[in-house]
């Protein structure tokens, strides 16, 4: 078995009596793009924040590049980057200063040419001197993504990365994620946009109420929950919906239920 970049074993997160994530285990290998999907409150963000070393697990272990995020957090964090949903920036720092600071954190030598390429790619070059607070929601997202790519991490985690991005930004991000995987990094994307996850990912991790429903390749997911060629949406609903729920209905069943078949 190839070395895992991320290895999560029996990760559990408890808030008092509430079990947010229950004994979750999965691994990410180099080049894999994994879609982390699940309904609201499934524990997706909690899991990502735990991997990023922000919240400690109640039990279980999380290792990034072989380093435990609890016991050896600095080495683990050197290898990862986490772009949260609606990333917050330093309002009074400029775009360039955010990149300068990020380069300093991850000890990126000769960061300026890399930063220029990223800025150009995400159409932020004209905004180089603008303060973060002068940027639109989408531009702030793009800047956070540029900062994330600056040090070429081994593990990239995106929480709802497309929010606020324009079509060109979405396309650029998709290409950049594929390039990231191609150079040997692992990417974990949490999103409710299932079509996008389907486009990008090689593997799938479905969570529901903190419990793992599925972990494996897309082909395995289809084999387990639907038929070949079924959409990820269908797989998702079948994996997470209760028996008899509308989510399990086929399109034909839905049409006959609302009478549109007769029409």
């Amino acid at each position: 078995m190839p070395d895992a970049i991320l290895e999560v074993s029996d990760y559990t997160k408890r808030y008092g009596d509430v079990l947010a994530v229950d004994r979750l285990s999965f691994r990410l290998e180099a080049g894999q793009v994994v879609g982390l999907v699940g309904p609201n409150g499934a524990g997706k963000t909690t899991t990502m924040r735990a991997i990023a070393g922000i919240i400690p697990p109640s039990s279980g272990t999380i290792r990034v590049g072989g380093h435990d995020v609890v016991n050896d957090p600095v080495e683990a964090k050197r290898r990862l980057v986490y772009v949260p949903d609606d990333p917050k920036l330093f309002d009074t720092l400029s775009v360039q200063e955010h990149l300068q600071f990020t380069a300093s954190i991850y000890d990126v030598r000769d960061w300026k040419p890399k930063a220029e390429v990223l800025l150009e790619r995400f159409e932020l070059t004209p905004k180089r001197s603008a303060l973060a607070r002068e940027l639109s929601r989408g531009m702030r997202q793009k800047l956070a993504i540029c900062c994330a790519y600056l040090h070429e991490p081994k593990l990239v985690m995106f929480d709802e990365p497309m929010t606020g991005l324009d079509p060109l930004g979405i396309r650029t991000l998709k290409i950049s994620i594929q390039e990231c995987a191609a150079r040997g990094a692992s990417v974990l994307i949490s999103s409710h946009l299932l079509a996008l996850v389907e486009d990008l990912t090689t593997h799938l991790l479905i969570l529901e109420s903190g419990v793992r429903r599925f972990a494996g390749s897309l082909a395995e997911a289809r084999a387990s929950y639907a038929t070949d060629g079924a959409s990820l949406e269908e797989v998702f609903f079948r994996a997470t919906a209760a028996p008899g729920s509308i989510a399990n209905a086929t399109p034909r069943e839905l049409r006959s239920a609302d009478g549109s078949d007769n029409a």
Binding site: A52, G53, I54, P73, V74, E75, K77, R78, L80, V81, Y82, P84, P87, K88, L89, F90, D91, F101, T102, I105, Y106, A144, C147
Partner: peptide, 16 residues
């Protein structure tokens, strides 16, 4: 901390 500090510094390779 500031929200930006949480997003930038907490997942970064710094000790507590």
């Amino acid at each position: 901390f500031l929200q930006a500090e949480v997003d930038f510094l907490f997942p970064a390779p710094f000790t507590r």
